[in-house]
Simulated scan of single mutants.
Amino acid sequence: MRVKCVLCDGVNKIESYSLLAKNLRKRRVQTYICPSCYERITEKTLERKKNQNFKLYEEPKGDPHI
Results as ranks from 00 to 15, higher is better:
Cys37Arg: 00
Tyr57His: 09
Arg28Gly: 15
Phe54Ala: 12
Arg48Val: 01
Arg48Met: 07
Val11Ser: 12
His65Ile: 13
Arg28Ile: 14
Met1Asp: 01
Asp9Asn: 05
Thr31Ser: 08
Leu19Val: 07
Leu24Gly: 14
Asn12Gln: 09
Ser18Tyr: 12
Tyr38Asp: 12
Ser18Gly: 11
Ser36Trp: 08
Ile66Val: 06
Leu24Phe: 04
Ser18Pro: 01
Glu43Leu: 06
Glu58Arg: 15
Glu15Gly: 11
Lys26Met: 11
Tyr32Lys: 05
Tyr57Gln: 04
Gln30Leu: 13
Leu19Ser: 15
Lys4Phe: 05
Arg48Glu: 03
Thr45Leu: 08
Arg25Val: 11
Glu58Pro: 00
Pro60Leu: 03
Gln30Asn: 12
Asp63Trp: 15
Ser18Glu: 10
Cys5Val: 01
Asp63Cys: 08
Glu59Lys: 08
Cys34Leu: 02
Leu24Asn: 07
Leu19Trp: 02
Cys34Phe: 05
Pro60Gly: 00
Pro64His: 04
Val11Asp: 09
Thr31Gln: 14
Gln30Met: 13
Val29Ile: 04
Tyr57Cys: 14
Ile41Phe: 05
Gly10Lys: 02
Gly62His: 15
Leu7Ile: 11
Thr45Asp: 04
Pro35Glu: 01
Arg40Lys: 08
Asn51Met: 06
Leu20Glu: 08
Pro60Ser: 10
Leu46Ser: 08
Lys55Ala: 06
Arg40Gln: 11
Asp9Val: 01
Met1Gly: 00
Lys61Phe: 07
Met1Trp: 01
Pro60Asn: 07
Lys61Asp: 06
Cys8Thr: 02
Cys5Ala: 10
Glu39Tyr: 05
Gly62Asp: 14
Leu19Ala: 13
His65Glu: 15
Ala21Pro: 14
Arg28Phe: 07
Leu7Asp: 02
Gln30Asp: 14
Leu20Arg: 03
Asn12His: 04
Cys37Tyr: 10
Ser16Pro: 04
Phe54Lys: 03
Ile33Gly: 05
Asp9His: 07
Ala21His: 10
Glu43Trp: 00
Lys13Gly: 04
Leu24Asp: 11
Leu56Pro: 12
Tyr32Thr: 03
Thr45Trp: 14
Val29Tyr: 05
Gly10Phe: 00
Lys50Ser: 06
Val11Ala: 05
Phe54Cys: 10
